[in-house]
Design a protein around this nucleic acid. Structure first.
Lengths: 257, 257
DNA sequence: TGGGCGTCTGAACGGTTGTTCAGTCCGTAC
DNA sequence: GTACGGACTGAACAACCGTTCAGACGCCCA
């Protein structure tokens, strides 16, 4: 189902002042915030310029007047979201003293409209958000390094790889927030952050105690190496680039699709 | 950018037989596979019926003739993907003896067109894939239980919660495969599975050795509880449901968006 | 031989999309 | 007072969308 018209603000005229909700700022920035909200909620293709204009209480050609095209509006959204993210980052850095509990959860909740937009943007791809993604990786690397200096986080053989993996895991789980809501009864992007504690407890367990027994895993790998050797013992040599010895699901295995 | 016309198979006529690629099956199933491929590659809204028809070498009305509507085609795709997933699952179960190394990686690669479709389907939401998601959770729970019985995986306080978290993390990271490709140089859904070993090594480290020092974490939580008490020591009682004491980014904090 | 039926097509339809156009309103500078 | 320029609008535009329609083709059964 395609999203058509949002709940218009009703301020259909030009200078309708004291309205509920956001302080009815400049029309240009109202358009931008409406676009971020609707894009984040429904995706880029699903939301029409007319829906954005109606949500901002203006006409569709005005959107073009200010942002030249729908693609221009989207890159403006990208830039604005990146800028907002940068601001909230520096605010959290300025926060001295012991962090309150669940600071991260509350920060997620307070910026959930930005996160929803990022989720849509990362899902849709496009090079506009790559720089933001890199910065987020760098930030989480910084956080992990600081936590490591406090002894809260263990050292890693490859800190950057670990930071990337943890970030991909965390943000990726956020992209599945609808399924997360079905499994845990609460979405990290709606609902009360307090209700997320069961989920956080499960994440904490995965991060505080190992899931895989490293010793057993190493034994298993060694026995499988021997198994692979046994399989290949009548073949003189592996042709380089040949497919692996695994008889994975055979259908479609040779096509280029 | 909207995807318009795929690389048509060239079999523009009706009975063009021996073509490269898939064995030019029934037109009806050719439409279904084209739809799964294109939907998975570009998303639902981005792909038009005409593009699917061109990719399958048929006309657009024939798609309607077989599947009634675009929505009908999508639910048919959902069902087909779920069925294919079920089949490949039972195949992997029938696989006896020691698993070859990187079995999971090769299985991902062999079924990457299905995975790409699932990613788009989960990102777009909709209730059609919920059942499949639940089954995947159940499957991973089974795998983890079996690995636990082998001593390969440590026990958990809440095995189901842990299985959900691990699955959300793994599949969520897959949804960010474009960013993953930028960070690790290889995508799990294209390219050679062998090149994924650096990524797998990082994941393995996160799963074999704890990231967070549980003892330090507990100390931190206790000190923060004391901190929270100090903050509230002049307030007689917390109003139930009131916002937390965290001064998270102030802008927009009161609105309903 | 003929009639029905499923497959499949080109042409066309109504609707929505992003965008353009001509023009109105309004605050500001001269 | 008037010319100007930006904000903003309704009407209109071409393009594309999913879908419908009428008909052509080939195959099976009588």
């Amino acid at each position: 189902m395609v999203y058509k018209y949002g709940a218009s603000r009703g301020s259909q005229g030009h200078s309708a002042g004291g309205n509920a909700g956001p302080p009815a700022a400049d029309a240009r920035s109202r358009i931008l915030e409406s676009a971020i909200d609707l894009f984040g909620e429904h995706g880029f293709q699903e939301v029409s310029l007319k829906a954005i204009a109606a949500h901002a209480g203006v006409s569709a050609p005005l959107v073009i007047h200010h942002y030249q095209s729908k693609a221009g509006l989207r890159t403006a959204c990208d830039r604005h979201v990146a800028e907002e993210f940068r601001k909230s980052k520096t605010e959290s850095v300025r926060f001295k003293g012991p962090m309150p509990r669940n600071y991260a959860l509350d920060a997620i909740y307070a910026n959930r409209h930005l996160l929803k937009y990022m989720i849509q943007a990362f899902a849709a791809g496009g090079p506009n958000m790559d720089e933001l993604f890199d910065r987020m990786i760098e930030d989480s690397l910084d956080y992990l390094a600081e936590a490591e200096s406090l002894g809260l986080v263990h050292p890693s053989k490859n800190p950057r790889h670990r930071a990337v993996v943890i970030f991909l895991h965390s943000f990726g789980a956020l992209m599945l927030h609808k399924q997360m809501e079905r499994e845990f009864g609460v979405s990290p992007l709606d609902g009360d952050p307090k209700d997320l504690l069961p989920y956080m407890a499960a994440v904490l367990e995965v991060h505080t105690q190992p899931v895989i027994n490293a010793e057993k895993y190493r034994e298993l790998m060694e026995s499988q190496e021997a198994f692979d050797r046994d399989i290949h013992n009548d073949v003189p040599e592996d042709a380089p680039g040949a497919e692996s010895a695994v008889p994975a699901t055979p259908q479609r295995s040779g096509t280029d699709r």
